[in-house]
Design a protein around this nucleic acid. Sequence first.
DNA 1: CATGAATGAGGTTTCATTCAT
DNA 2: AATGAATGAAACCTCATTCAT
Lengths: 209, 209, 209, 209
Amino acid sequence: MTDQSVTKTKRQRRPDDRPAEILAAALSVFAKKGFSQARMEDIAKRAGLSKGALYLYFPDKVTLLKALVTQATGGQISMASAMAQAETAVSPLIMHFATTLAARAQDTELPFILKLVIAESQAHPEIGKFYLENVVLQAIPMMEKLIARGIATGEFRAVNPAHAVKSLMGPFLLSALWRSVFEPLGAEQLDVRALITQHVDIFLKGLRP
Amino acid sequence: MTDQSVTKTKRQRRPDDRPAEILAAALSVFAKKGFSQARMEDIAKRAGLSKGALYLYFPDKVTLLKALVTQATGGQISMASAMAQAETAVSPLIMHFATTLAARAQDTELPFILKLVIAESQAHPEIGKFYLENVVLQAIPMMEKLIARGIATGEFRAVNPAHAVKSLMGPFLLSALWRSVFEPLGAEQLDVRALITQHVDIFLKGLRP
Amino acid sequence: MTDQSVTKTKRQRRPDDRPAEILAAALSVFAKKGFSQARMEDIAKRAGLSKGALYLYFPDKVTLLKALVTQATGGQISMASAMAQAETAVSPLIMHFATTLAARAQDTELPFILKLVIAESQAHPEIGKFYLENVVLQAIPMMEKLIARGIATGEFRAVNPAHAVKSLMGPFLLSALWRSVFEPLGAEQLDVRALITQHVDIFLKGLRP
Amino acid sequence: MTDQSVTKTKRQRRPDDRPAEILAAALSVFAKKGFSQARMEDIAKRAGLSKGALYLYFPDKVTLLKALVTQATGGQISMASAMAQAETAVSPLIMHFATTLAARAQDTELPFILKLVIAESQAHPEIGKFYLENVVLQAIPMMEKLIARGIATGEFRAVNPAHAVKSLMGPFLLSALWRSVFEPLGAEQLDVRALITQHVDIFLKGLRP
DNA sequence: CATGAATGAGGTTTCATTCAT
DNA sequence: AATGAATGAAACCTCATTCAT
């Protein structure tokens, strides 16, 4: 108790990439506790910082969440736009896109981000809107055009492309939430890649003329 | 002290179905604010009760949420078991099941319950577990058997039934979250019935031998 | 330590005049500590309440201060307007007004309110403005008219009435701040009544034609 | 490691008068925000220093305030003592003294210092006491003697000198607070010189035998 | 059964102060 | 001497829950 040799304050100075470290800590705490239940002090501790230091990088809790969503989501958008270019057959494109996304759903924390967005979109609509506009409303029209092109070229039979996109994407959502919601509760792990591979196969066969 | 016969009128507000009224109030407040942001007083007010009276019916906030999920979810289970019986062709069964569920996703508050479960399952695992065990793990094996039977009878080609179920169910999840998460943010409304009808069509064609 | 007979929570219910009790408590704490240094919990304790109960009556700390100023200040205004009526000689009116105000400066907490207003008017301009508009800018023009009338009737010699008012009022301010600022520091007590009586005497003689 | 002769230029910013620069910065920030609301960082920034450097000159915030009051107040005292000497008629002395002080109230930041002292004397009694002892209790007895001498020489009629001093000084206080409290709130500017000139005129006439 | 005033634990945020560089 | 990142105490305010009436 009176041991004074212990450095009671380990004042660290690592301007390395504090924001990124904090975001990583925030993600893991948010994922474990949910946004409301997460305490800023826990995030700080996990980032190896004091409570106050957090506020040097992010002005408040909500901004932290926004930054997290923004960061984790950045990649998606670019992927989407890259996809729209090609002029080859549609089916392989869809399969490639699906495989890439499946890998992300399987290996990254994206599913937890998605769960956060779902959970907090009521209390913090800016976050929900951000996701809606930057992810959902980027990806969906892109896929829609792809499907429409498939129909136009005779690769697919005539269906409503807007609805078809949701047929295609639904299982991704299911996989993501399975991972982030049900697996932590003890549900068996999902083999997302296998699931999606078969799903795309069914989907593409189902669209055959 | 005062004339008690007068007071009587006040109490006549059908004290019968108080719990149900409270649950209805809770659902609408939870749906609007999310669980954490919902205040017990708001629920009480909407149920036409005082804060204190709430506690005569539900011991605490979490129990209220549990009861809500239990109640809203009860129907699903029975539907599921009823389905398992029939011995007819599988495709019409699936279409019927899908149509029924689409109607619920479109017309009831079920999507909001689902969103609540997703949002709160970390902070209150009992709720997540309850849903997992009573809804998800009831419905999925049932559908799985159905698909397996279709394969056995030659109605479907050979696929992994466990994965196929998720191909089938994913768009329901997507529809539910679209309604509960994105529509409140201004996204265009989804015609769930049309979407699901086409989805099942694609899905069943995709499973043809 | 394990004595359970002690009522640990003395939940009181005295809807008597809680707001007034709270304001009294607030005044005494603000007067002792100043606004910023005053802790809501101290005010609560002094009012015989818990921290939270305070917020049932006043939504926040600033509102509490505003209410205090408003209440303590209410009387002044009516006094001012009553004064403007009479048509008699001006000197006795001034003497009467001065005597009344001296009594207040001597016997009430008004000086402490004034000190609070002065101290907080930067941080909370609404409070300063309220005081300026409802007290200062009510009293001063009224006195100005009185003096102007005295000049018109030949009771006083020709002076600038706007400045003369400040000659008259200055010592009140000095008395108030002496009581609220210097007496608590150990300065000798001021006999405000005697001071003001002599002051008005000098002032009126100084205005003789 | 790097060329140090280059660095030298940076340091040449007259390190001589840092304390004075800091005090000037502190005054302007305190005047704008009040003591509690003033942030050390703002003072540092305005003084062209870093937060940390402030602490090389002043050990803490309160000391800074004390130093400010001490500095701004220094002049007063010497003026007071100089005044006590002369042996001429009292009235011209008073008029001269009043004019000098009016100029200060009009043109310097003294009114803001006074307001600070008033606002903080509860929370930091040393500051109030310092002002009381070094300013108030220096000036008042001096003026008192002056008035007593006027009475003794027959220049003034017999009044209570202690009270008369407050008749004389009150309007200064009023002017100072008008400038520091009410003008920032939008009140019309006060012509302190004219006000005081007339005030002294009234006061002296009011004291005529 | 019902009320709503009262409680108090708990979490976010601020900012004076410290100290490694 | 100087910097500014880091610390952590402190205080406001919220709201689930209790209980006297």
